[in-house]
Design a binder for these strands. Structure first.
Lengths: 270, 270
DNA sequence: CGCGCGTTTGATAATTATCAAGTGCCGTGG
DNA sequence: CCACGGCACTTGATAATTATCAAACGCGCG
């Protein structure tokens, strides 16, 4: 919420954003214009970034932390429809669409743009248009992956799949892998949210987690951080053999490497 | 698959497509170019339109019938990630993306474009680009709605939600409402697909359907067509009170009206 | 008529929701 | 520094829901 970053901090963040797949294809002048209008914001965990129904007058992308998109049902319950990790974008370029509330699941740093100015830039830059199209296509893929996740027949399968998807889709965010230490995964959201997201209850989540602990698949480090002990068994429990354990191990290794090269936090907070 | 349509038929289909929300915003010359390259195809139920992994060299939209998008898992199972109804588009403008198999769930009529020529037209027409962006955003909304659907905690809730979503999203396709007769909903896919889509088993689907029949919510007309007897109870069973019964009743009335004005089949097959 | 296919039904065991009580953790305030 | 309270998570017991395996049913088709 506050704009208290030093200019150096801001510049460092913006520099990092250039590495986004989204932006790396943009011509320099568009990139420059984006930088000019960028506004770095911080929100604490639980803060509402955009309320549902509000005219979402900003678009942006996540710099660090996890953001959740949720729809508020008329009976007061809420339904999480997506989780966004660093580099993911949020907001609507065209305002007249099915809207979701945008909420900070953890402490987050965002890079925001005024919607109108962004839309205007969009009109003038085909490259940006293409980039936005790709962004939305990515979102679509992600949403359909979640769809596959939730269709798992048992809660344990859904839970295992959720954990694996965290690892695969956001290795840099979800994993806190020290160079030599265990593989730690952050569950990203609290129990009630997770339960609703997986179409079950808090108690079932808890029981199934404990069951996985008993079976030696994982170990708990606090309530929402897991250590993965038996990746193969986790894949088996998910019922999705297309999660190749090898691919995931590679992701772990990559994260470890990143830790080695940038243990000062510069890259690890991205 | 065959191209045996008479020119009149083809012209009639193309004329109808102009009413798509997608196309109505396009300038005439783009529309004309689309028409020129359009190819009308028919597929029987169960036919594979695009296999997963195949270089999807066409994009297009559904003219009539229901198309399913499914991902084939490495262990042979398949996971339905979307159902497409008339006016919905399929295919990938950019080929390098997570791909799905495209399969006909019912007999379908498609309006297809060569991917490259479509992509080329896309480069030259900002209006078309915008239309495509909107299409993808719609798909995203739809995917997130399905997410909300599947997160229902019990099978009966998911099933009820599924039925209601069919009604709301595709009244013209799913409903076979005669001017005065009962409200008939087509389930669109066979039991195994439905079961997998809802994250459950064929038996549970069957049992819950029968339970709804016993409770007087619906009546079965054959295995995959339902008559809705108690809309309010169905909404209650879905657990999603945001399905206002009034809105749905309006959709039914609208379908009835359509039947009255065009009972010759010209509009009702669109 | 008999066959094959998809759907339904039945019985049983496993999974899960529900309600209620317990545990651990963390910040506040004494 | 420690006790207290609140909060989130875990655990327990029971009833409901669901998966699984197996068999029956209905129906179109050769």
């Amino acid at each position: 919420m506050q704009e208290t970053d030093t200019n150096e901090k801001r510049a460092a963040i913006l520099r990092k954003l250039h590495h986004d797949p989204l932006r790396s294809s943009l011509p320099p002048e568009v990139l420059h214009q984006l930088e000019t209008m960028a506004e770095i914001r911080h929100y604490p965990a639980g803060a509402t970034i955009l309320a549902q129904g509000e005219k979402g007058e900003i678009v942006g992308n996540v710099v660090s932390g996890i953001v959740k998109l949720e729809r508020l049902l008329s009976d007061g319950r809420q339904q999480i429809v997506a989780l966004l990790a660093p580099t993911d974008m949020f907001g609507r370029v065209e305002p007249e669409r099915l809207e979701c509330a945008v909420e900070a699941a953890t402490d987050v740093t965002l890079c925001c743009f005024d919607r109108r100015r962004f839309a205007h830039l969009l009109e003038t830059s085909p490259a940006l248009q293409k980039a936005v199209l790709f962004w939305v296509l990515d979102e679509l893929d992600a949403a359909r992956e979640w769809l596959g996740l939730i269709a798992g027949e048992t809660v344990k399968a859904r839970l295992a799949t959720y954990i694996l998807m965290l690892c695969r889709r956001w290795p840099n965010q979800a994993l806190e892998t020290a160079a030599e230490g265990p593989v730690l995964v952050s569950l990203a959201v609290a129990r009630p949210d997770l339960a609703h997201f997986l179409g079950t209850t808090v108690e079932s989540i808890s029981r199934n987690l404990q069951s996985m602990v008993r079976d030696g698949l994982i170990r708990q480090h606090g309530a929402s951080r897991l250590e993965i002990l038996d990746l193969g068994a986790l894949v088996a429990a998910s019922g999705h053999s297309e999660f190749s354990a090898d691919t995931l191990q590679a992701a772990f290794a990559q994260t470890r490497e990143r830790q080695l090269f940038g243990p000062d936090g510069a890259t690890s907070t991205l």
